[in-house]
């Protein structure tokens, strides 16, 4: 029983980090209808800046710097690259983000080189034990911080002017722009927020029990894709739920891999995708996504 509870807590904690990444992904999609394949590199930028600066300026300032840098990079991508796209075909713009991802990731990986970078977090390998369950402090911190950020964001989305503007732009961009909403500001804002969230996610992906930030960290961001999809690409609630589902699936698949041995080894990599496909079969637009209604 304790094993199960530990797996669940672990899964929810990692899942909340995936939710942060997926949320950023969904925000960009809602605001600009672009599938951002460059999200992994935003994550890596944020983590890298935090790692490089935490020795000089302290952990929290470095984290802030990382978030700011990732936000700025996100805005630059939107401004320089996507806005210039002569075609409005969003499928093609998604391909541009693949190119951007390759550019950013190659340069960052070149800088990281063969090192494993520490992000200077204050929790280290300390853990909390109660009722026979041991949970690292980093996992609890991840869960708390992610919850706070996501709640803050959802509230902002619902009640602030910016949030309303973004929802309006996502709903119907033409009308929104006619109503005086600056679409360019909305998309810049979306990319900035996504970058900042990704930077926070980078932190929690590289603390204990992983040794630190290295060239493979960006691959983890890939797991946010099934999370965003199975929740529904245009639903922020969906991103949250999707992230948790992916985290739980991964954790349980790893924890019970002996019992699931007949399905082959290394199940935790493929299980989230299988779950995603199953959900898509039942709900083709994800759990909370809006089904496209086309006008004839």
């Amino acid at each position: 029983m304790t094993k199960f509870i530990e797996l669940v807590v672990n899964g929810l904690s990692v899942g909340s980090v995936y939710a942060l990444i997926a949320l950023g992904f969904v925000i960009i999609f809602k605001a600009t209808e672009v599938v951002n394949f460059a999200h992994a590199s935003l994550l890596l930028v944020g983590g890298y800046i935090t790692a490089v600066f935490h020795d000089d300026i302290g952990f929290l300032p470095a984290l802030a710097a990382g978030m700011l840098t990732a936000a700025v990079v996100g805005m630059l991508v939107e401004f320089l690259v996507l806005r210039r796209g002569r075609t409005s075909d969003h499928g093609v713009l998604a391909i541009v983000t693949i190119g951007v991802d390759i550019l950013l990731t190659t340069e960052l990986v070149r800088r990281i080189g063969t090192d494993v970078l520490d992000l200077g977090d204050p929790w280290g390998s300390q853990s909390v034990t109660f009722a026979g369950i041991t949970i690292p402090q980093t996992r609890i911190a991840a869960l708390l911080v992610a919850t706070v950020l996501i709640t803050a964001f959802l509230l902002a989305f619902r009640y602030t002017t910016w949030g309303v503007a973004m929802r309006a732009a996502a709903e119907d961009s033409e009308t929104a722009s006619l109503m005086g909403i600056k679409l360019s500001r909305v998309s810049l804002g979306a990319w900035a927020v996504a970058g900042a969230l990704a930077a926070v996610a980078a932190l929690f992906l590289t603390v204990f029990p992983t040794p630190g930030l290295d060239r493979n960290t960006s691959l983890v961001a890939l797991k946010a894709f099934p999370a965003a999809i199975l929740g529904g690409l245009d639903s922020t609630t969906g991103a949250l739920v999707g992230g948790l589902i992916v985290g739980l699936t991964e954790s349980l698949a790893t924890g019970y891999q002996d019992q699931l041995h007949f399905l082959g080894h290394g199940l935790s990599g493929v299980a989230p995708y299988v779950v995603m496909v199953l959900i898509l079969l039942a709900r083709p637009a994800g759990l909370f996504g809006t089904r496209e209604l086309t006008r004839v």
Partner: peptide, 29 residues
Amino acid sequence: KPTDTDLTNQAGALAKQKVDGILLSVGPA
């Protein structure tokens, strides 16, 4: 898998089972 870097589940499980020794044929991370 070589791309897994978080071994909480695996190492934790072994520790719980109170094995006498842990062998690692994995990468540095």
